[in-house]
Design a protein around this nucleic acid. Sequence first.
DNA 1: GTCTATAATTTGATAGAC
DNA 2: GTCTATCAAATTATAGAC
Lengths: 180, 180
Amino acid sequence: MGEDREQLILNVAEEMIRQGGYNSFSFRNIASAIGIKSSSVHYHYSTKEDLAVAVTKYYTDQFIGALGSPEDIVSSGKNPISQYVQAFRQALVKDKGMCLCGMLGAETDILPESVVAETRVFFQRNVEWLETAYRTSGEKDGAKEKAIQTVSLLEGAMITSNVMGDLSFFDAAVKLLDKS
Amino acid sequence: MGEDREQLILNVAEEMIRQGGYNSFSFRNIASAIGIKSSSVHYHYSTKEDLAVAVTKYYTDQFIGALGSPEDIVSSGKNPISQYVQAFRQALVKDKGMCLCGMLGAETDILPESVVAETRVFFQRNVEWLETAYRTSGEKDGAKEKAIQTVSLLEGAMITSNVMGDLSFFDAAVKLLDKS
DNA sequence: GTCTATAATTTGATAGAC
DNA sequence: GTCTATCAAATTATAGAC
């Protein structure tokens, strides 16, 4: 797949932020992972803040885009919440990393405002998606509350599973959703 | 106990880690917050790794200690899970910070092994406490699974509430526990 | 677009005086 | 226990050549 240079930078930065947050990636680290110099990374993204905003936007678009629409999932006979849980599980298994916006969300206090704002967009769009999913599945009341519960549980499940190095923690945690 | 200075260093370091994680505190920042020099901080904790381990141990002991025993809570007629939720809520409201071990748990991949090990202790002890709480409250089966669900949900609820800057996200999220 | 070179600052850590 | 002084390395960022 023909990734251009900016995409490659975004992908490497994403991986680093998902492993250790905003303060764990540097222009030099990204550059050497790609095989270029740090000044070349600055050519594409002039400041660290700019790069982090771009990564967050890219991550959010990819994540929401990969989900598809809740309505389509329901009308194809599948459970949109199960699909949503699988998206988080895949992120943990395949990329072996945290949710980028879960990580940044925890670090809110030390982030540039523009990055915080973009991280909030992730959560807003996720809550919207889940709200629609619950409504389309027949939940009349409390769809937004259910949405907040679901995304919160999944972010937390990633943390416990990540630190314990045991995916069964993730699976145990998300079973809580079966009861609602 | 090496109360005064060392305690102060631990408290300042705790606050900084809870705001931005392992890479967001430095010997100089801690020193200037206290009014001493960075070399004096090194006198008490020779390396950053040592300091982080000490902070994590201290945080875990304080957190578990403040909870009291689940048995005592139950026999005094109160709900231990409600008390547990309140402990997390207080951490968010009063200190305006994340759970230290939730933060470090997310950053596992970039932490020294000794810090990861100590962070795991936090989660192990929390799961144990909750397991006992659920068993003492009359739950026969699945107490450990419930424990994992509860601590995961609370860690995630702190993230969403923190990033959105709205405590109602925390309150909405934890209502999921009422259904189990 | 990428490079070399460099500036200004911060970092974790140490040596030795008091 | 705290200080001054210092170090080597890393950080974000810029200027200018090719």
